[in-house]
Computed example of a mutant assay.
Amino acid sequence: MRIPIYLSLALGIFASPLVLAEELPDAVKQIEAKGAKIVGSFDAPNGLKGYAAQFQNRGVALYLTPDGKHVLVGSLFDQQGRDLSEKPLEQLVYAPMAKEVWAKMEKTAWIADGKADAPRIVYLFSDPNCPYCNMFWEQARPWVESGKVQLRHIMVGIIREDSPAKSASLLASKDPQKALHDHESAGKASTLKALEKIPAQVQAKLDANLALMNELGLSATPAIFYLDDQQRLQQQQGAPRPELLGKILGKR
């Protein structure tokens, strides 16, 4: 089952107002005044004009009637039952948002698990005290060890009182990749110690990671992000069921 990223992200965070050559019609402005952000326009049949908008955590299609006085909100289907709103919303709303989210994650303080030249990258927000993060780490071993996937752990500290200091310990390590591997491979027997005092530069990294997690509307770890076969950004919350591993990590 595909889990669209746009079902769980606060789209308004990433939206930028559309700059149109002509002013928006008054009927469309009324929808905008209710909180929608118009991000693009597209062709529609029978004299209608389509607008792509972001509203309450999802993409919405607007259809302006030929007289310019009324707006229909929702999906438009043709006589074959095809949703004519799906493609424009994917192109104008979800695809740009996905690229921006991916770029934001690339800039976080993450710890690599796997080869740098692995053909597939998977990000996850990870807490050192999270048993489900450890479960996913174990699940991913065949893909990581074969060089097919690199996991990028965006370290946060939200589960226990010592979680931030443990994440800081990993980030501040001389070899963060080895420190993470030692911690995860040990499981419950891990001897990872929390830092007594977190250096300011490490604290700044943790703060930035947590800020992005909050922006994305996430409240638990692991929160896993990956690109599907169509290069669309997808999310998995929690350790995935075995049958989903192939979608997230690719073919073994």
Results as ranks from 00 to 15, higher is better:
residue 192 L to A: 12
residue 88 P to W: 03
residue 212 L to D: 15
residue 11 L to Q: 02
residue 142 P to M: 09
residue 65 T to P: 01
residue 66 P to C: 01
residue 125 F to D: 06
residue 92 L to G: 01
residue 62 L to I: 01
residue 183 H to G: 02
residue 190 S to M: 14
residue 9 L to V: 12
residue 21 A to Y: 04
residue 155 M to G: 07
residue 226 Y to R: 06
residue 81 G to H: 11
residue 130 C to K: 10
residue 163 S to D: 06
residue 22 E to C: 02
residue 191 T to C: 12
residue 198 I to N: 08
residue 78 D to S: 03
residue 151 L to D: 00
residue 121 I to Q: 04
residue 136 F to E: 14
residue 24 L to K: 03
residue 145 E to P: 05
residue 233 L to C: 12
residue 74 G to M: 01
residue 244 L to Y: 13
residue 60 V to H: 01
residue 67 D to I: 00
residue 235 Q to T: 07
residue 196 E to R: 14
residue 49 K to Q: 04
residue 28 V to N: 04
residue 124 L to E: 15
residue 35 G to N: 09
residue 238 G to R: 14
residue 224 I to Q: 07
residue 224 I to G: 05
residue 169 S to E: 03
residue 189 A to I: 03
residue 95 A to V: 03
residue 162 D to A: 04
residue 148 K to R: 14
residue 110 W to N: 05
residue 185 S to T: 13
residue 224 I to V: 10
residue 8 S to L: 13
residue 189 A to Y: 11
residue 36 A to D: 08
residue 183 H to N: 08
residue 149 V to I: 05
residue 163 S to G: 03
residue 159 I to G: 03
residue 234 Q to R: 11
residue 243 E to C: 05
residue 185 S to P: 07
residue 243 E to S: 11
residue 250 G to I: 08
residue 206 L to R: 03
residue 47 G to I: 01
residue 99 K to E: 14
residue 172 A to H: 08
residue 122 V to Q: 10
residue 206 L to P: 07
residue 221 T to N: 15
residue 134 N to E: 13
residue 80 Q to T: 06
residue 16 S to P: 09
residue 180 L to M: 14
residue 46 N to Q: 08
residue 133 C to Q: 14
